[in-house]
Computed example of a mutant assay.
Amino acid sequence: MTTTGELRAALGRTGIWMPPPAAIGVDPQSYGREIEEAGFGSVWVPGVNAPENLAALEPLLSASSRLVAGTGIASVWTWSPAELAAGADRLATAYPGRFVLGLGVSHAPAVERTGQAYVRPLAKMAQFLDELPPLRAPLVLAALGPKMLELSRDRALGAHPYFTPPEHTAFARSVLGPEPLLVPELAVCLAAGADGRAAARAYAKYYLVLPNYTGNLRRFGFGDEDLADGGSDRLISAIVPSGPEAIRARVREHFDAGADHVLLQPVGEAGRFAPGQLGELAPVIADAIRNG
Rank of each mutant, 00 (worst) to 15 (best):
A191G: 00
A249I: 06
F222V: 00
S80H: 13
Q116S: 15
A69Y: 05
D287K: 14
F255T: 05
G145V: 02
G243P: 09
A156N: 10
G231F: 01
P283H: 12
D287Y: 05
A110K: 03
S64D: 00
K147N: 05
F40A: 11
V262Y: 05
A191I: 05
L151R: 06
E83A: 14
L101P: 01
W79R: 11
G15C: 11
A22R: 13
P241K: 11
A191T: 07
R248D: 08
E167P: 06
D287F: 05
T14L: 07
L217I: 07
P59D: 09
I285V: 14
G15P: 13
V48I: 10
D195T: 11
R136V: 14
F273D: 00
F220G: 00
G5P: 08
P28C: 11
W79I: 11
A204Y: 03
R290P: 01
R272G: 10
A204K: 02
V251M: 13
H168E: 15
G271Q: 02
A192D: 15
V105F: 00
G70V: 14
Y207M: 02
D224W: 12
I73Q: 12
L84T: 05
G230M: 03
E52L: 07
L227H: 03
W79E: 07
A23N: 06
A123G: 10
A172F: 11
V100Y: 01
Q29Y: 02
E280L: 06
A202M: 04
A257R: 13
V175G: 14
L208H: 01
A270T: 03
P28F: 12
A92S: 09
A156P: 01
T78A: 15
T4G: 04
G292H: 08
L61V: 03
A282L: 06
G72Y: 07
L176F: 01
G5A: 11
E52M: 02
V119H: 14
I35S: 01
V76A: 15
S30R: 15
L182G: 05
A86M: 12
A110I: 00
Y162N: 08
A259G: 00
M148P: 06
A274W: 01
A86P: 10
Y118M: 00
E253P: 01
E131P: 13
F222M: 04
S30V: 10
D229E: 14
S152Q: 09
L217G: 04
A23K: 08
P146T: 08
L84I: 00
A286F: 04
G72E: 06
T93P: 00
L149Y: 11
F222N: 00
G243W: 02
S232V: 02
G215R: 04
Q29C: 13
T164C: 15
F128L: 10
I35H: 02
L141D: 07
L181K: 05
M18D: 10
L141C: 06
S174M: 14
P138H: 12
E280G: 09
S65K: 10
P180C: 08
Q277C: 03
L61N: 00
G221R: 04
D130I: 13
V267R: 01
D224I: 09
G12D: 12
A9Q: 15
G47S: 15
T2A: 07
G87Y: 09
P138N: 02
A204H: 06
D154K: 11
A270E: 10
A288D: 12
T114E: 09
G196R: 01
W17I: 01
G258S: 07
D229Q: 08
G72L: 12
Q265F: 12
L57N: 02
G196D: 00
M125G: 07
